[in-house]
């Protein structure tokens, strides 16, 4: 009896520890990158449409040489070689999660603008990085196709159109020329204010040790 009482604390401790250890040894390790945004948060953001940047705004920022813009081309390297916007970097969609791009995608200095030919690839990429909790990523509305259509080859509005249609046309034409030919033309287009770049507390490297 005395023997049993003496053994008891050890067994009392050992048995649960052993069982927990056995279970944990059999469970696969948690290697998933935790999603930072819930489905509900995502839905709200998508509905608000705040991730979209219009070609007009983008043209305005480019013409004014806004330094905080980072264009990201999500098409294949071949497509990128053929044509891309000035100063855009190429992150092919299939390569999005490669560690070499984390510093570009997860940052609080620049405003990233994703584009592809249409908006599908840009939107897919945006959904992924947004769920990872990365801020400051946006999508070029309509993609390259719409960019070419509206900025590089704008169609003149009909004579019966309201005045602001003409103003927009003039701006686009000017911007298109500026982007194509290089003669800078200050736009007086009242564009929507640029979204603020979200600063976030620096992720601290773990500290410790004696």
């Amino acid at each position: 009896m005395k023997e049993l009482l003496q053994l008891k604390p050890r067994l009392l401790f050992s048995i649960p520890i052993f069982i927990t250890g056995l279970v944990l040894a059999l469970v696969p390790e948690n290697t998933t990158q935790p999603y930072k945004l819930s489905a509900q948060d995502m839905l709200l953001e998508i509905q608000s449409g705040s991730e979209m940047v219009t070609p007009d705004d983008l043209a305005d920022w480019i013409v004014n040489k806004d330094p905080s813009i980072q264009l990201i081309d999500l098409r294949t390297p071949e497509e990128y070689e053929q044509y891309h916007l000035d100063n855009a970097i190429n992150i092919p969609l299939h390569d999005l999660l490669s560690p070499e791009w984390v510093d570009y995608l997860d940052q609080d200095v620049k405003m990233n603008i994703f584009y592809s030919n249409g908006i599908t690839r840009a939107h897919e990429a945006w959904m992924i990085v947004r769920q990872l909790g990365y801020d400051n990523n946006y999508i070029l509305q309509g993609g390259l196709n719409y960019w070419v259509e509206t900025i590089l080859n704008p169609t003149a509005p009909k004579n019966s159109s309201p005045d602001d249609e003409f103003a927009r046309y003039d701006f686009r034409k000017g911007a298109g020329q500026a982007l194509g030919a290089g003669s800078i033309q200050k736009s007086n287009n009242t564009s929507t204010p640029k979204p603020k770049i979200k600063r976030r507390p620096r992720k601290k490297a773990p500290e410790g040790g004696c």
């Binding site: 401790f13 773990p206 500290e207 040790g209 004696c210």
Partner: peptide, 29 residues
Amino acid sequence: MNPYLAGLFLGLVLLFAFFFSGRGLGASG
């Protein structure tokens, strides 16, 4: 205190430090 119980308690303290501060115990530092 029973050594296993004290060890369990110390382990929980250690876990508490990890969970809150992301670091463990130390003395010589």
